[in-house]
Amino acid sequence: MSIILKDLGPGDIDWLVAEHSRLYARDEGFDASFGRLVRQILEAFARDHDPARERAFIAWDGTERLGSIFCVAQDAQTAKLRLFFLVPEARGRGLGKRMLSECMGFARACGYRRMVLWTHESHAAACALYRHAGWRMTRSEPRHSFGVDVVEQAWETAL
């Protein structure tokens, strides 16, 4: 696999918003509010992140973007995993596992003691990756978000 992980760069925000919006609308029925949330998260990261303790990992195969995962500070001891995403063509090849491992390793190296994330029950493959990497679900509750009924989940792991 010749895939490399780069930091957030030119064009990445627009690509991530477009791909999240397109695929979550197609696969989950999410409305436009989801894309707006993704843009807010990305723009805040680009503007305010601390490069010593927060990082974006954008997966590239040559000139093609394949996905992302972000490590951001929730507090001094806790990192938050955000925007873990792979295009469908990149799934099932071990890239998600690699990206999760890189992100967790970065958080550990920064001195975070634990890591948390928020997701939806429908993301079964990602949840299986989390479980396999030692994460545990701490909360699961039905909600109406992004125009559809979902089951939100919170996960965490010790680093």
Rank of each mutant, 00 (worst) to 15 (best):
F84I: 06
R55T: 00
A44Y: 03
S145G: 00
Y130V: 08
A125R: 05
I4V: 15
P10H: 07
D27A: 15
M1V: 12
I13A: 05
R22F: 08
R39N: 04
Y130N: 07
T157L: 06
A76C: 05
W60C: 05
Y112P: 05
D31S: 10
G134A: 09
H144L: 08
G147W: 06
M1I: 09
D149V: 04
K97I: 01
H144I: 12
K6R: 13
E141P: 00
W155C: 06
A18P: 02
R65L: 02
C103E: 03
G147D: 02
R136C: 04
A18T: 10
R55F: 00
L66S: 04
K97N: 07
G147C: 08
F84L: 12
G96N: 06
L5T: 13
R65V: 01
L129D: 10
M115D: 00
Q77P: 00
E43S: 05
I4K: 14
V148W: 11
E28G: 00
K6Q: 09
A128S: 11
H120E: 13
M1H: 14
R91I: 04
S33F: 07
L37N: 11
D27N: 14
I13Q: 06
M137S: 13
D27G: 06
Q153M: 15
H132L: 14
L5N: 10
Q153L: 11
V17Q: 12
D27Q: 14
L23C: 07
R26C: 05
F45V: 02
F146S: 08
A76N: 13
R139V: 00
F45P: 01
H123A: 10
R131G: 09
S140K: 15
A44Q: 11
F34C: 07
A124V: 15
S140Q: 15
V17N: 08
R114M: 07
S2R: 14
T157D: 03
E89P: 01
G67Q: 06
R82H: 04
A25H: 14
G96K: 05
A79P: 08
V151K: 13
I4A: 10
Y24M: 12
R113F: 00
G9W: 02
S101D: 10
V72P: 01
A133T: 01
F146G: 06
V148S: 08
R91G: 06
I13M: 03
L83S: 03
L16Q: 10
R91F: 03
D61I: 02
I13R: 08
E121R: 14
D27T: 11
D27C: 09
C71L: 11
A32Q: 15
P142G: 11
K97A: 15
H49R: 12
L66M: 09
V151A: 10
G9M: 04
D7E: 15
G62C: 02
M137N: 13
V116N: 01
G105E: 09
H123M: 15
A107V: 00
M137V: 08
A90D: 09
D14G: 02
A52R: 12
V87Q: 09
M1W: 05
P10Q: 13
E141M: 09
L95H: 04
P10R: 12
A133R: 10
E89C: 11
R143M: 14
S122M: 09
C110R: 13
R114H: 01
M99R: 07
R26N: 04
E54P: 01
L117N: 07
